[in-house]
Write a protein that binds this DNA or RNA. Structure first.
Lengths: 235, 235
DNA sequence: TGCCGGCTCGCTGTCGACAATCGACTGGCG
DNA sequence: CGCCAGTCGATTGTCGACAGCGAGCCGGCA
């Protein structure tokens, strides 16, 4: 039970545009839409059973999120991911998470780390079981929660952009089993440092953690990135 | 002569949507559209002489940029700026610029600081002349250039979101004359540190600089923020 | 007099159609 | 044989119109 608000207001409240954004997110993050693939508005609209107006608005959003790239009057395509993008992504991610941790530590009330600890624990178990998908999922939860706990709204907004890209990278790349153990265990020093309210150590820990992840991913990116099955559109 | 590409391809190349985005940017950043003011699509479209379709797409963009807030089926309004937003803005800005500086310093080729130095010099002169508008303009140039020099694309994208908000804050707040001198001169230590390729010192310098600015702005925000003239729309 | 229900109106969400533009193909000319 | 101009198809950009939700107003009822 990750989170199921079911707040009733959710019922039908989503506009068509947001539905489309969700669908496209899913498609891009899962790799159903491969990097570089063109998005033909007419076709997509027909496939989704909607008109082009909300679809175009959705594409605007995807565009601001950096998931697609639009060339005026030329078209839109799923954005590609080069090695440089990975490096940039993880370097930015590092400083954002470091900021989050500083915010958390600076909070007057002793912060509630139980959520993070619970996630971390489950992640370790999943890693030892070799359940790669679960580890990834919990990894994302961990970092999303960390950002949320900072109470820094603007940071959360910014993080959203980064998180989308990270998720994308993680799906495009298949990790080895050793890797996920490494990743899972490297959350522990972060928790320790936050618990001790030691800003310096926490910052180092998170940056080391992120750098590790980034290195693992960037390591042989060219290999793992572009075997995008050259299937023509089938969404 | 800030920058005038005039590359001829610019002629007519902008879609209507982008024009609208520019106009709305201008209107919001200049305060012509005051915080909280509702944006009625029908009216706006009529005033701009366009249909609602490109206007709505433009609003999507403004929305992702955080300049407006949309409540589904209720409408869009210019987003407000609370004191908390200012604090968050400047804290994020600090870490982003610190990252930029680290990138610049890490670059193998000795970076070309002349552009920054030139801007800084002109800023000092403007500050001594008491030319507030010019100082602000040069201040923005300085920081935009700094980010650009990092060569970090994702950082530039992220910076765009921050810079928009900073510009907005700067227009909503009238600085005192002492303030701008203080701001202008506090760029110097940053330049020095970069020149010496001293990462530690540069980071401290930029964070001090940003913090100073943030404090100056946040100081009496409630006073300077909300005297938004309650004029009804005249765009 | 105060509260509840229905009505009306303004506005947003969505749609289908038209106009404009770009790329590729084809044919003619040097 | 190669290059340039003209044409055609495909795709995006823009528009006006309709449908549907939400808020505020008005009237009836306790």
């Amino acid at each position: 039970m990750p989170d199921a608000p079911l707040s009733l207001g959710q019922l039908q409240s989503k506009s068509l545009r947001e539905h489309i954004v969700d669908v496209l997110h899913e498609a891009i993050l899962c790799g159903d839409l491969s990097p570089g693939q063109p998005l033909i508005e007419t076709d997509l609209a027909a496939q989704l059973g909607v008109s082009r107006a909300p679809l175009r608005e959705a594409i605007q959003i995807l565009n601001s999120e950096g998931l697609v790239e639009t060339i005026p009057r030329r078209g839109t395509r799923v954005s590609t991911l080069e090695r440089k993008d990975i490096v940039e992504l993880y370097s930015l991610r590092g400083v954002l998470e470091a900021l989050a941790i500083r915010c958390i530590i600076d909070q007057s009330d002793p912060c509630d780390l139980r959520r993070l600890e619970a996630i971390s624990e489950r992640m370790l178990r999943a890693a030892n079981r070799g359940n790669l998908r679960k580890v990834n999922e919990l990894d994302h939860s961990f970092h999303d929660t960390l950002i949320a706990m900072s109470g820094h709204c603007l940071l959360q907004t910014t993080w959203h952009l980064v998180a989308l890209r990270v998720r994308r990278v993680m799906t495009l790349r298949n990790m080895r089993n050793d890797d996920i153990r490494l990743v899972a265990y490297s959350h522990l020093p972060i928790l320790d440092a936050i618990r001790d309210r030691d800003g310096e150590r926490a910052t180092s820990a998170i940056e080391a953690h992120v750098a590790t992840g980034g290195d693992l991913v960037a390591e042989d990116w060219e290999v793992g990135a572009m075997p995008a099955p050259l299937d023509e559109r089938d969404l």
